[in-house]
Design a protein around this nucleic acid. Structure first.
Lengths: 248, 248
DNA sequence: ATCATAATTTGATCCTAGGCGAATTGTGGC
DNA sequence: GCCACAATTCGCCTAGGATCAAATTATGAT
């Protein structure tokens, strides 16, 4: 019997750590940083896009301030959070939308992993929530669909992003969005973001963030106790039906 | 000075572990499972979609068979890999495309984390590679674009997936893809999969897998030593130019 | 200047999780 | 039935990491 060639190749690949082993090890580092319960709690708390101080994060993580501090150091070293200092307060927030996106995608796995799809009708998070700094959940997906149906939003760059049509720009301007300013920001304008509860994309990026700001300002939605969940107000229902033809 | 209401709410949210703390903890578990270097190496090795035995995986991970065995148990418990037994061999493979997708999204973070975009011209993996069981890299994205330009592929369901047009079905049938059988499989037909090196979507799912099979069968691409990398053959260049008008 | 508060650093403790070798189980070939 | 091989389980060791209390640094208020 002859030794299978495949095994020899595998051994070689294992010993050869020059190719993309570096990339793999960073992935392991990042995953390990997320993979500590206290740190995961902090990260998910930050997924609403707000910045929080280390003592606040110590509370949500359920650890002492000193412990939280080392955790945050680790997260910062892995570039999952960033720090900005204001006087004696030090605010931590997610490093960027990409981090929120990766956390969402791990949620997809976690959600799909629990095989009980039957009675596990989740909670109010399914209806409407924030994803980093924009709308997600059933409401986020519904808005996304509605905007496309109205011809306000067009699919761009092979499905990974959207762009506003002329009509869409006018319509959003009428809602109070400063489209030109939003477009001028140094982040992607309107990328598609996969929704873990709906398994379909919703609107993210600068435009998604601007939209959430408007919705909050007009009190269409209000943050729930758990800051990621959003409650749709009576005003919101009325306005979205009248302005968008969307029944929620 | 009054205590900020936000802090009280945060403490409450921390104590209240009923809402989505369960989801967070599973995410932590999954991330921790990925976050061990040896396990990460195994997972990335499996990203080509092949099933491998525990001894093979022990080799690539650089650990003893017994150690590899407990690692694989852990990965199976977290539903990241699945096991199928054939006689005295026990083959492990990724649990599903969703796992590959999550690993890919962590790669995005790891890639973006290294701020040296200058001299870090990566390796042959950028040109063409397998992502779980379909084509990725520059070639994967180029094919995706070309199919859309040819009117073979249409964007579906708000950008998260594609579907074949009538012309596309005929064209792929001419290439040797059994479109009807592919469509009948119990997995998503043609979802968009985000490419970490190109930062744009490529074609995944059942159709993406079928396409890779054809490309391998027709020897348009051949697996490199590192099994995730693919080399484009002379035949492949000629055929893709002639049949698709794609210069690679 | 002095004090109070926010946050980190230090030091010490504890314990989980990774590691391997040896023994055990399971399967196929003879 | 017996042996060879794959794979897992067991026992033991070690190290890294999570934790907190106490001390230290930094900043703002009085």
């Amino acid at each position: 019997m002859i030794v299978e060639p495949g095994v020899a190749r595998l051994a070689e690949a294992g010993a050869d750590s020059g190719t993309d082993a570096a990339a793999e090890s960073t992935v392991a580092g990042i995953a390990a940083a997320i993979g500590e319960p206290a740190r995961a709690r902090m990260l998910f708390c930050l997924m609403d896009g707000q910045a929080r101080t280390s003592t606040e994060l110590a509370l949500v993580a359920g650890v002492s301030p000193s412990t939280a501090s080392v955790h945050l150091q680790r997260l910062k070293a892995e570039r999952l959070v960033k720090l900005f200092v204001q006087g004696k307060h030090r605010y931590y927030s997610l490093e960027g939308p990409a981090v929120a996106s990766a956390l969402e995608s791990l949620s997809v796995l976690a959600g799909g992993a629990g095989r009980k799809f039957t009675s596990s009708t989740p909670n109010r998070l399914r209806a409407a929530r924030t994803c980093y700094d924009h709308l997600a959940g059933a409401l986020g997906v519904a808005l996304n669909d509605r905007f496309q149906a109205l011809g306000w939003l067009a699919v761009e760059s092979a499905g990974a992003a959207y762009d506003l049509t002329v009509e869409g720009s006018q319509a959003l301007a009428a809602l109070g969005v400063d489209v030109a300013a939003t477009r001028g920001l140094r982040r992607r304008f309107a990328p598609a973001c996969l929704d873990w509860s709906e398994r379909r994309p919703h609107l993210g990026g600068a435009l998604g963030a601007a939209l959430l700001q408007i919705a909050l300002k007009k009190k269409w939605v209000t943050p729930d106790l758990d800051s990621r969940a959003l409650a749709i107000t009576a005003v919101g229902r009325r306005e979205m039906l009248a302005r968008l033809g969307l029944r929620v």
